[in-house]
Write a protein that binds this DNA or RNA. Structure first.
Length: 424
RNA sequence: GUGGGUGUAGCUCAGUAGGCAGAGCACCGGGUUGUGGCCCCGGCGGUCGAGGGUUCAAAUCCCUUCACUCACCCCA
């Protein structure tokens, strides 16, 4: 048997209804907030990611699916969406028509990590990006949108954490302070942290080793090193969130894994997910558009991890499954051919109808109707055909009524509430 | 990349002093002539993850390998 590739997965019919529901809700909300959908390719030039995400990051260094295509170009399956969205914004000069764009995209990303709970090599994200506005209310609005989405899904036990990483003005000052702190405390750090110290010193803030945690409590905070404008910006984000009663925690150790982030960063965490507890994350990236060859335009965005979100919603999938409205139980050859005609006619009227082609006993056909959770069963055999009727049984009330064969389709259509999702 | 746990029927799992591969659920049929769920009876279904070794005999012991899973790491 040929099996699927490690770290990849099939999303089976038992779950697709839930995925569709979540995606539809996201589209609805995003479009209410003025976002337009952008569809971008799965494959990009490798350089796009090494330049945006950062050549030294783990993603670029050891997690990308990169290959040389037959023409000799180095291509990469996208490990995230923002780089592609920025590329499209720049390449098509969207900024020339209007510098302000609110774009979203939904689709799979690829990272070759070791699979575990909530971490797959192909995983799905909903991405939203806003270009051309550096007003802190945009940051807040984006977070509000995100939290409304979570609220609409009725997710339990989620927390929002926010932080500011500063800008090219103030970040170097903080980095210096942090570096000298780390150098003087290197004796108390674990081997992982000593390795991270040069590559990505901010990461030390979320090390899980107790001694590191303790040491880092005395480490300098980014928030104490923000310049005047960054401080004001962050203050305004917080103020807006409070104005909309969005509860948040400040986590000065909150870091993004990608180099391009500036100022506001945020993450939505769900404890019940286990080690991979970030359901959504994002932040501002004011230098990225320019770094990718575009004009000096600010940007801010987020990504929602769909796989993890669905995980949180596990068990609710059944609610969104669509059961048949009518099951046609046809006994005998003559009835079978009449029933097959009705089946197609009902579907023309957007009634979900099913039939069994095996010409089995009425008992088996009833059993099948029950298994499919059909709302009604339309019973027809030689007896009914001779009398010019069929029997319509309501499976919940067990009431049966005789239906004349002429106009039978419209009769059934009227009995059924085609707007109802399930049948019970 | 590093560690731990687990691989037996479609699913959830039993099965060790090595001795005929099991249960529940699911699926199919039946419980008198044309009516579902509950109950009863019967049936279908397995290269015991794969390869090798020890043995008269291996799901069980040994070696190798693969997969899944959780955690580290990393991140949505």
């Amino acid at each position: 048997m040929i099996k699927l590739v490690r770290g990849f997965k099939d999303i089976l019919p038992a779950d697709t209804a839930l995925w569709q529901h979540v995606e539809a809700l996201a589209r609805e909300l995003l479009e209410d907030f003025g976002f337009y959908e952008l569809r971008i390719p799965l494959l990009e030039q490798t350089e796009l990611f090494s330049r945006s995400i950062g050549a030294g990051t783990d993603i670029v260094e050891k997690e990308m699916y990169t290959f040389t295509d037959r023409g000799g170009a180095s291509l990469t399956l996208r490990p995230e969406a923002t780089a592609s969205v920025v590329r499209a914004y720049v390449q098509h000069r969207l900024y020339a028509k209007d510098p302000v764009w609110k774009l979203y995209t939904i689709g799979p990303m690829f990272r070759r990590e070791r699979p575990q709970k909530g971490r797959y090599r192909q995983f799905y994200q909903i991405n939203a990006e806003v270009f051309g506005v550096d007003d802190p209310r945009t940051d807040a609005e984006l977070i509000l949108l995100l939290m409304r989405f979570m609220g609409r899904l009725e997710l339990p036990d989620i927390t929002l954490q926010i932080n500011s990483l500063g800008c090219p003005e103030c970040r170097p000052r903080f980095k210096n302070a942090l570096e000298s702190f780390l150098t003087s405390h290197s004796g108390q750090l674990c081997s992982d942290c000593l390795r991270r110290q040069d590559q990505n010193p901010l990461r030390l803030f979320d090390c899980k080793v107790p001694s590191c945690k303790e040491t880092m409590q005395d480490a300098p905070s980014v928030l104490d090193h923000l310049c005047e404008t960054c401080r004001a910006h962050f203050g305004s984000v917080k103020e807006s969130l409070e104005g909309f009663q969005v509860p948040y925690q400040i986590n000065h150790g909150l870091v993004r894994g990608l180099d391009y982030y500036t100022r506001t960063t945020f993450e939505v965490l769900a404890e019940s997910l286990g080690a991979q507890d970030a359901v959504a994350g994002g932040g501002r990236y004011d230098g990225l558009v320019k770094a990718l060859g575009g004009p000096e335009q600010p940007g801010v965005g987020f990504a929602i991890g769909l796989d993890r979100l669905i995980e949180l919603l596990a068990g609710r999938a059944q609610v969104f499954e669509k059961r048949p409205h009518v099951f046609i139980a046809a006994i005998g050859k003559r009835a079978q051919s009449v029933g097959f005609q009705w089946l197609q006619d009902l579907r023309l009227q957007r009634v979900r109808a099913e039939i069994d082609f095996e010409n089995r006993s009425l008992k088996s056909q009833m059993r099948r109707a029950d298994k499919l959770e059909a709302s009604y069963v339309l019973i027809v055999g030689d007896r009914e055909l001779d009398d010019g009727i069929a029997v319509l049984r309501n499976m919940t009330t067990k009431e049966q009524e005789k239906v004349p064969l002429e106009n039978i389709i419209s009769f059934v259509v009227n009995r059924i509430d085609t707007t109802a999702v399930g049948s019970r």
